[in-house]
Computed example of a mutant assay.
Amino acid sequence: MAIGDLPGFTVASGPDAPNPRPYRDALVAEWNRLVNSEDIQLEKVAQKFLERHPSLIPGSHGSHMKYGKWPWPGAVISQPRLPGIAERKPDFLWIASNTTHLLPVLIEIERPDKRWFKRKTLKPHSDFKDANQQIHEWRKWFQDPLNHLNFVRDYKLPDDISRLRVEVQYILIHGRHEEFGDDIERLQDRAAREVEHLRLMTFDTLLPDANAMSYGTVKLDVDKRYKALSAPAMLEVNSLWSRFLNDTDGWQETIENSPDIGSERKQRLLSELAEAYVATRGADQRNPIPGRRRK
Rank of each mutant, 00 (worst) to 15 (best):
Leu149Asn: 10
Thr121Lys: 13
Arg153Gln: 03
His148Trp: 10
Ser126Thr: 13
Arg153Trp: 01
Lys140Thr: 10
Asp154Gly: 00
Glu137Leu: 14
Phe142Gln: 07
Asp144Phe: 12
Asn132Lys: 10
Leu172Ser: 04
Leu146Gly: 09
Phe128Glu: 05
Arg111Asn: 06
Leu149His: 12
Glu179Lys: 02
Glu137Tyr: 12
Thr121Cys: 07
Lys118Gly: 06
Asn132Gln: 13
Lys156Val: 06
Arg119Leu: 05
Leu164Asp: 03
Val166Lys: 11
Tyr170His: 07
Leu157Phe: 01
Gln134Glu: 09
Trp116Ser: 06
Lys120Gly: 08
His125Asp: 14
His148Met: 15
Pro158Phe: 06
Trp116Tyr: 06
Glu110Arg: 14
Glu178Met: 11
Arg119Asn: 13
Arg115Glu: 09
Ile171Met: 03
Lys140Ile: 11
His125Trp: 13
Gln133Gly: 11
His148Phe: 14
Ile109Phe: 14
Leu172Met: 06
Pro158Gln: 03
Tyr155Gly: 03
Lys118Tyr: 08
Trp138Pro: 05
Asp160Trp: 05
His136Ile: 10
Pro145Ser: 08
Arg165Asp: 08
Asp160Pro: 03
Thr121Ala: 12
Glu179Ala: 04
Asp113Gly: 04
Lys140Pro: 01
Glu179Trp: 01
Val152Asp: 01
Arg139Tyr: 09
Val168Gly: 05
Trp141Ile: 00
His174Trp: 01
Lys114Thr: 08
Lys120Arg: 12
Arg153Asn: 00
His136Leu: 04
Lys120Tyr: 08
His125Leu: 15
Arg111Thr: 07
Phe151Gln: 05
Pro124Leu: 15
Arg176Tyr: 01
His125Pro: 12
His177Ser: 15
Ser162Lys: 11
Asp154Asn: 02
Arg176Ile: 07
Ile173Thr: 02
Glu178Cys: 07
Gly175Trp: 01
Leu172Ile: 06
His174Val: 01
Leu122Gly: 10
Glu137Ile: 07
His174Pro: 05
Tyr155Asp: 03
Leu146Tyr: 11
Asn132Cys: 13
Ile135Asp: 03
Lys120Ile: 12
Trp138Gly: 05
Asp144Cys: 12
Arg139Gln: 08
Tyr155Phe: 11
Pro124Glu: 13
Asp154Ala: 00
Arg115Lys: 14
Ile135Ala: 10
Asp113Leu: 04
Lys114Gln: 14
Leu164Ile: 04
Ser162Ala: 09
Asp130Cys: 07
Glu178Phe: 06
Leu149Met: 11
Asp144Gly: 09
Lys140Phe: 09
Pro145Thr: 09
Asn147Ala: 04
Lys118Gln: 09
Ala131Ile: 08
Asp113His: 03
Gln134Ala: 06
Asp159Thr: 14
Trp138Ile: 05
Asp130Phe: 09
Thr121Arg: 09
His125Asn: 15
Ile109Arg: 02
Asn150Asp: 10
Glu137Asn: 08
Val152Ser: 01
Lys120Cys: 07
Val168Ala: 14
His125Gly: 12
Lys118Ser: 10
Gln134Asp: 06
Ile161Leu: 09
Arg176Phe: 03
Lys129Tyr: 06
Asn132Val: 13
Trp116Arg: 00
Ser162Tyr: 01
Glu178Arg: 13
Pro124Asn: 13
Glu178Gln: 15
Glu110Thr: 15
Tyr170Ile: 00
Leu157Pro: 09
Arg139Asp: 05
His177Met: 14
Val166Thr: 15
